[in-house]
Design a binder for these strands. Sequence first.
DNA 1: GCCCTGTTATTAACATGTTAATTATATCGA
DNA 2: TCGATATAATTAACATGTTAATAACAGGGC
Lengths: 151, 151
Amino acid sequence: MPEDRLLPRDTRRSLPIALLRAREAVMSRFRPMLARHDVTEQQWRVIRTLGEVPQLEANELAERACVLAPSLTRIIKSLEDRGLIARTRHETDGRRVLLTITPAGTDLIRAVVPESARIFAELEARYGRDRIHSLLDQLEELTATLSGDEA
Amino acid sequence: MPEDRLLPRDTRRSLPIALLRAREAVMSRFRPMLARHDVTEQQWRVIRTLGEVPQLEANELAERACVLAPSLTRIIKSLEDRGLIARTRHETDGRRVLLTITPAGTDLIRAVVPESARIFAELEARYGRDRIHSLLDQLEELTATLSGDEA
DNA sequence: GCCCTGTTATTAACATGTTAATTATATCGA
DNA sequence: TCGATATAATTAACATGTTAATAACAGGGC
């Protein structure tokens, strides 16, 4: 067993890389459609998240949309300039920022959702609905297990 | 069933977001260690990949390390300046760039690998070795299915 | 040998990721 | 009330993602 090459583990079986590749394989199907609507993947997550509730505080929005606070600050600025979301100050706590979606924002959601559903349906047809749900279950369990406690 | 809220699909069951969260949960365990060695996650993927073969062309390296060409250009510049990798021109084809790891690069690998293995072992212990392999299988199948043909 | 075309890598321009520092506001306790 | 501490958001600085354009070279057909 010559050691001329260093083998960290099994690179072809790396969990982080497998997650990265799978994510890219999935997103490459959605990105062109989102680009046609002039939104990035992250901007779409923010808009869609705001479409689900009457209003959200910035930190909650960041958590749900899976974007870091500095990114959210920039995205909010951009989406507010485009009139897709609205920013308000909390009444009693001047630090907090409240976000809501605008009518233009809901219009965008209504335009994107059917296309998104179509793409996802084709993905389900290709890979199998039950297998996707099974995969989702395992991903959620992994996430829950690892974020359980810090160590 | 009032329609005051728009429900794209089941946001809490979004495959792209689940992959993103899982990836973040995993990487958050490795990032601090890599930071102590002054490399980013992507730089580490590049270095580790080069540690597995005598030499690689840039396009092959980008593919294996899962970084886009423009990112690789920047990373190569940085790692070459730090003496961790070496860049050569292909003998007969002036367009191609050949990359090899340097002794300093292999030193870094030797320093990082044990720590990486320790972190991964703890992850395996926590989530289960067989479950991780099962998850890897499914991720690879999903990736293969979706990148099978373009549509 | 020369144009045409395709390929490889780089650059450009902008958006986001990532960590640390900073600002603004709240809250608590003396 | 004041001052110390904590929290929310922003900013700063750098690295990477993403797409499009460009530069540099190869190869084929004439």
